[in-house]
Structure formats: structure tokens, C-alpha cells
């Protein structure tokens, strides 16, 4: 039969009762500066990769926080590790190291 009309929509609601905090906690232990992000977007606006792809370190932080480990790992591949974001971040967050940790997690599955 032809695919017609309706399909079940993905629920947009973020249910905090089912959120998995393990990845966030692991990252926060690897780099204690992680929790200090204030979502100001300076990193994303200066990002070399972000000018050409849909990549934002601010969003990456959010994905980690909200338990979206898989997406974070996939996104982290887009970074060129140029370090501009580290220089710009007003909270002195060790952005490059965090990206490296996400990549490490993708390779070694520490959880």
C-alpha cells in the first residue's frame, strides 16, 4: 500500500524522569570545566567548522547534558580541533579537551 498521510510523530517532549545522566557525569569527571557553560554561544559564533556545517559546541554541550550521547559523538567528528573556541570562551571551558573526550568515548565506550 502506498505510504499515505499519517505517521506516528516523534514526541518532542524531553522527559527528565527517563534521562540518562551517565554520559554527562562521565564527561564532567574527565573535565571539571564542563559544567560551567552558560550557553552564551561565543564558541559557536567563532567556530571554523560551524561556518560550513551545522555544528555548534554550545549544542554539543546541551546534547551531552540531556543524555544524547550518540548524537554528541557523531557531531564531535565535525570539529577540526583548531581551538578558537577555547580562546573565546568566557567561562574558560576546556572545549577542545571536551571534544577529545567525546571522541574517546566513541572509540572506547567507557560506560
Amino acid at each position: 500500500m502506498k505510504d499515505f498521510g499519517f505517521s506516528p510523530m516523534k514526541n518532542k517532549v524531553l522527559n527528565f524522569d527517563e534521562l540518562n545522566h551517565d554520559f554527562h557525569q562521565w564527561i564532567a569527571i574527565q573535565d571539571s570545566s564542563f559544567n560551567l557553560c552558560i550557553a552564551c554561544g561565543t564558541c559557536a559564533s567563532t567556530c571554523s567548522a560551524g561556518s560550513y556545517t551545522h555544528f555548534s559546541f554550545r549544542e554539543l554541550c546541551k546534547d551531552i547534558r540531556w543524555g544524547n550521547a550518540e548524537k554528541a559523538m557523531k557531531e564531535s567528528e565535525k570539529c577540526m580541533l583548531c581551538g578558537k573556541c577555547s580562546i573565546a570562551c568566557p567561562r574558560n571551558i576546556n572545549t577542545r579537551n571536551i571534544i577529545k573526550m567525546v571522541r574517546k568515548a566513541a572509540k572506547t565506550s567507557p560506560l
Binding site: V13, L14, N15, F16, D17, A39, K62, W66
Partner: peptide, 12 residues
């Protein structure tokens, strides 16, 4: 709503 990621949130 988490207005930074445009997603409604619920939690107990």
C-alpha cells in the same frame, strides 16, 4: 520548556 534547545520538558 528548555528554551535553549526549543524542547518542552517534563519532570517529576
Amino acid at each position: 520548556e528548555d528554551t535553549l534547545s526549543s524542547r518542552p520538558i517534563k519532570m517529576t
